[in-house]
Design a binder for these strands. Sequence first.
DNA 1: TCGTATAATAAACAGCGTTCATTTATTAAA
DNA 2: TTTAATAAATGAACGCTGTTTATTATACGA
Lengths: 208, 208
Amino acid sequence: MGIPERKLRDKEEMRSLILTTAMKLFVEEGFGNISIRRIADKIEYSPATIYLYFKDKDEILYALHTEGFEELYKRQLGVQSIDDPRERLKKHGEIYIRFALDHPEYYNLMFIERGPAKKFAENDQWTVGRRSYEFFQQDVQRAIDAGVLPRGSANIATFSLWSLAHGIVALILRNRCTMLDQEKLRETALSAYHYIVQENEFVFAPKR
Amino acid sequence: MGIPERKLRDKEEMRSLILTTAMKLFVEEGFGNISIRRIADKIEYSPATIYLYFKDKDEILYALHTEGFEELYKRQLGVQSIDDPRERLKKHGEIYIRFALDHPEYYNLMFIERGPAKKFAENDQWTVGRRSYEFFQQDVQRAIDAGVLPRGSANIATFSLWSLAHGIVALILRNRCTMLDQEKLRETALSAYHYIVQENEFVFAPKR
DNA sequence: TCGTATAATAAACAGCGTTCATTTATTAAA
DNA sequence: TTTAATAAATGAACGCTGTTTATTATACGA
């Protein structure tokens, strides 16, 4: 009696076929060009078939968004090579900003777009994101304990620094930085983060 | 020979009829429910007619976005009652954050959505935004001069603080703050900004 | 009044997410 | 092997979207 098992495997295979196809479309052509109908085309099934495996489009987006958090978390682990609390905090920001600028489409999905967020309530209330967040928060707490950051709620401090990093890349990704040198956006982004989390006042000052 | 003049007036009237209708729809039903066809319905014209007065939908969005900047700038002027550079900087952030949370739809259009940004290149490269930005930048420069902020590029400092405020509200508006107390988001937002721009010497002041 | 310039529109195009009745394929039972 | 039941897949439609174009209605100058 291996038939129900095989059927389940088939179902799972189809789900992941849809997902990897969505992923490919997503990476190659960006968020805007992803559509149920195009995914269906690529896998040579009817659009209606996709709805047998996913409730709606947002459910697919949510899966992609989870994929993105895997990559981000992997990168975050890079901070472990650093001991100094302040340097570690800086590294966190750099990793975050680089991730966003390296994978703008993923970042968009993970932190800007409305779609996947709708699933937070239904699903696990942002479990994937939570892991990244708490990892960061730990190091923020450490920085506070070390006197590198002002005392106060670690929650607020974490949210504050995260907002800083998010704000930087979100404004860049959405083209709100026409007043900045477009050639040096990457450097500027990092400098903006360093301006807040810095060794002392001269480190990032322009050479004169 | 007042006919061509009247025609011009008519044309201008039609443009503003479309805009105010779009505005009404926008405010009443939000960004997602604004569409050329619904605007056309409301003013009892065909959708095609709208294209005689606006090149495309983004051009209408851009006009709304400009409207939003008027309101923001008005609020920004509120800082003029404050002299102390640090307090003024704090006020800037508060006004910005309050504006975003009071008018999420406008904020979305002005700083998050992709549509209007496409017009920056074609039009005047974000003149409306620039006014707000430069007003803020002046006060940042003043804070630097007063020793309230670390020395360094005023450009970076401005961008940095703006990013902080933007990040805070953007994450809230896009529902990425499930880890925070949803009842106190407003307070938390302000606290997050104050955490960076504060009396306390740790963050900004040079080491010892 | 007549031809012309302008304004407005109906209709269509190409796309979207989603639903549902119907058909096709697969499995279990007779 | 044939038949009945079940599961998988789909065609076609619904109701939207932004945008274009050929056609019609209107207003104007001569």
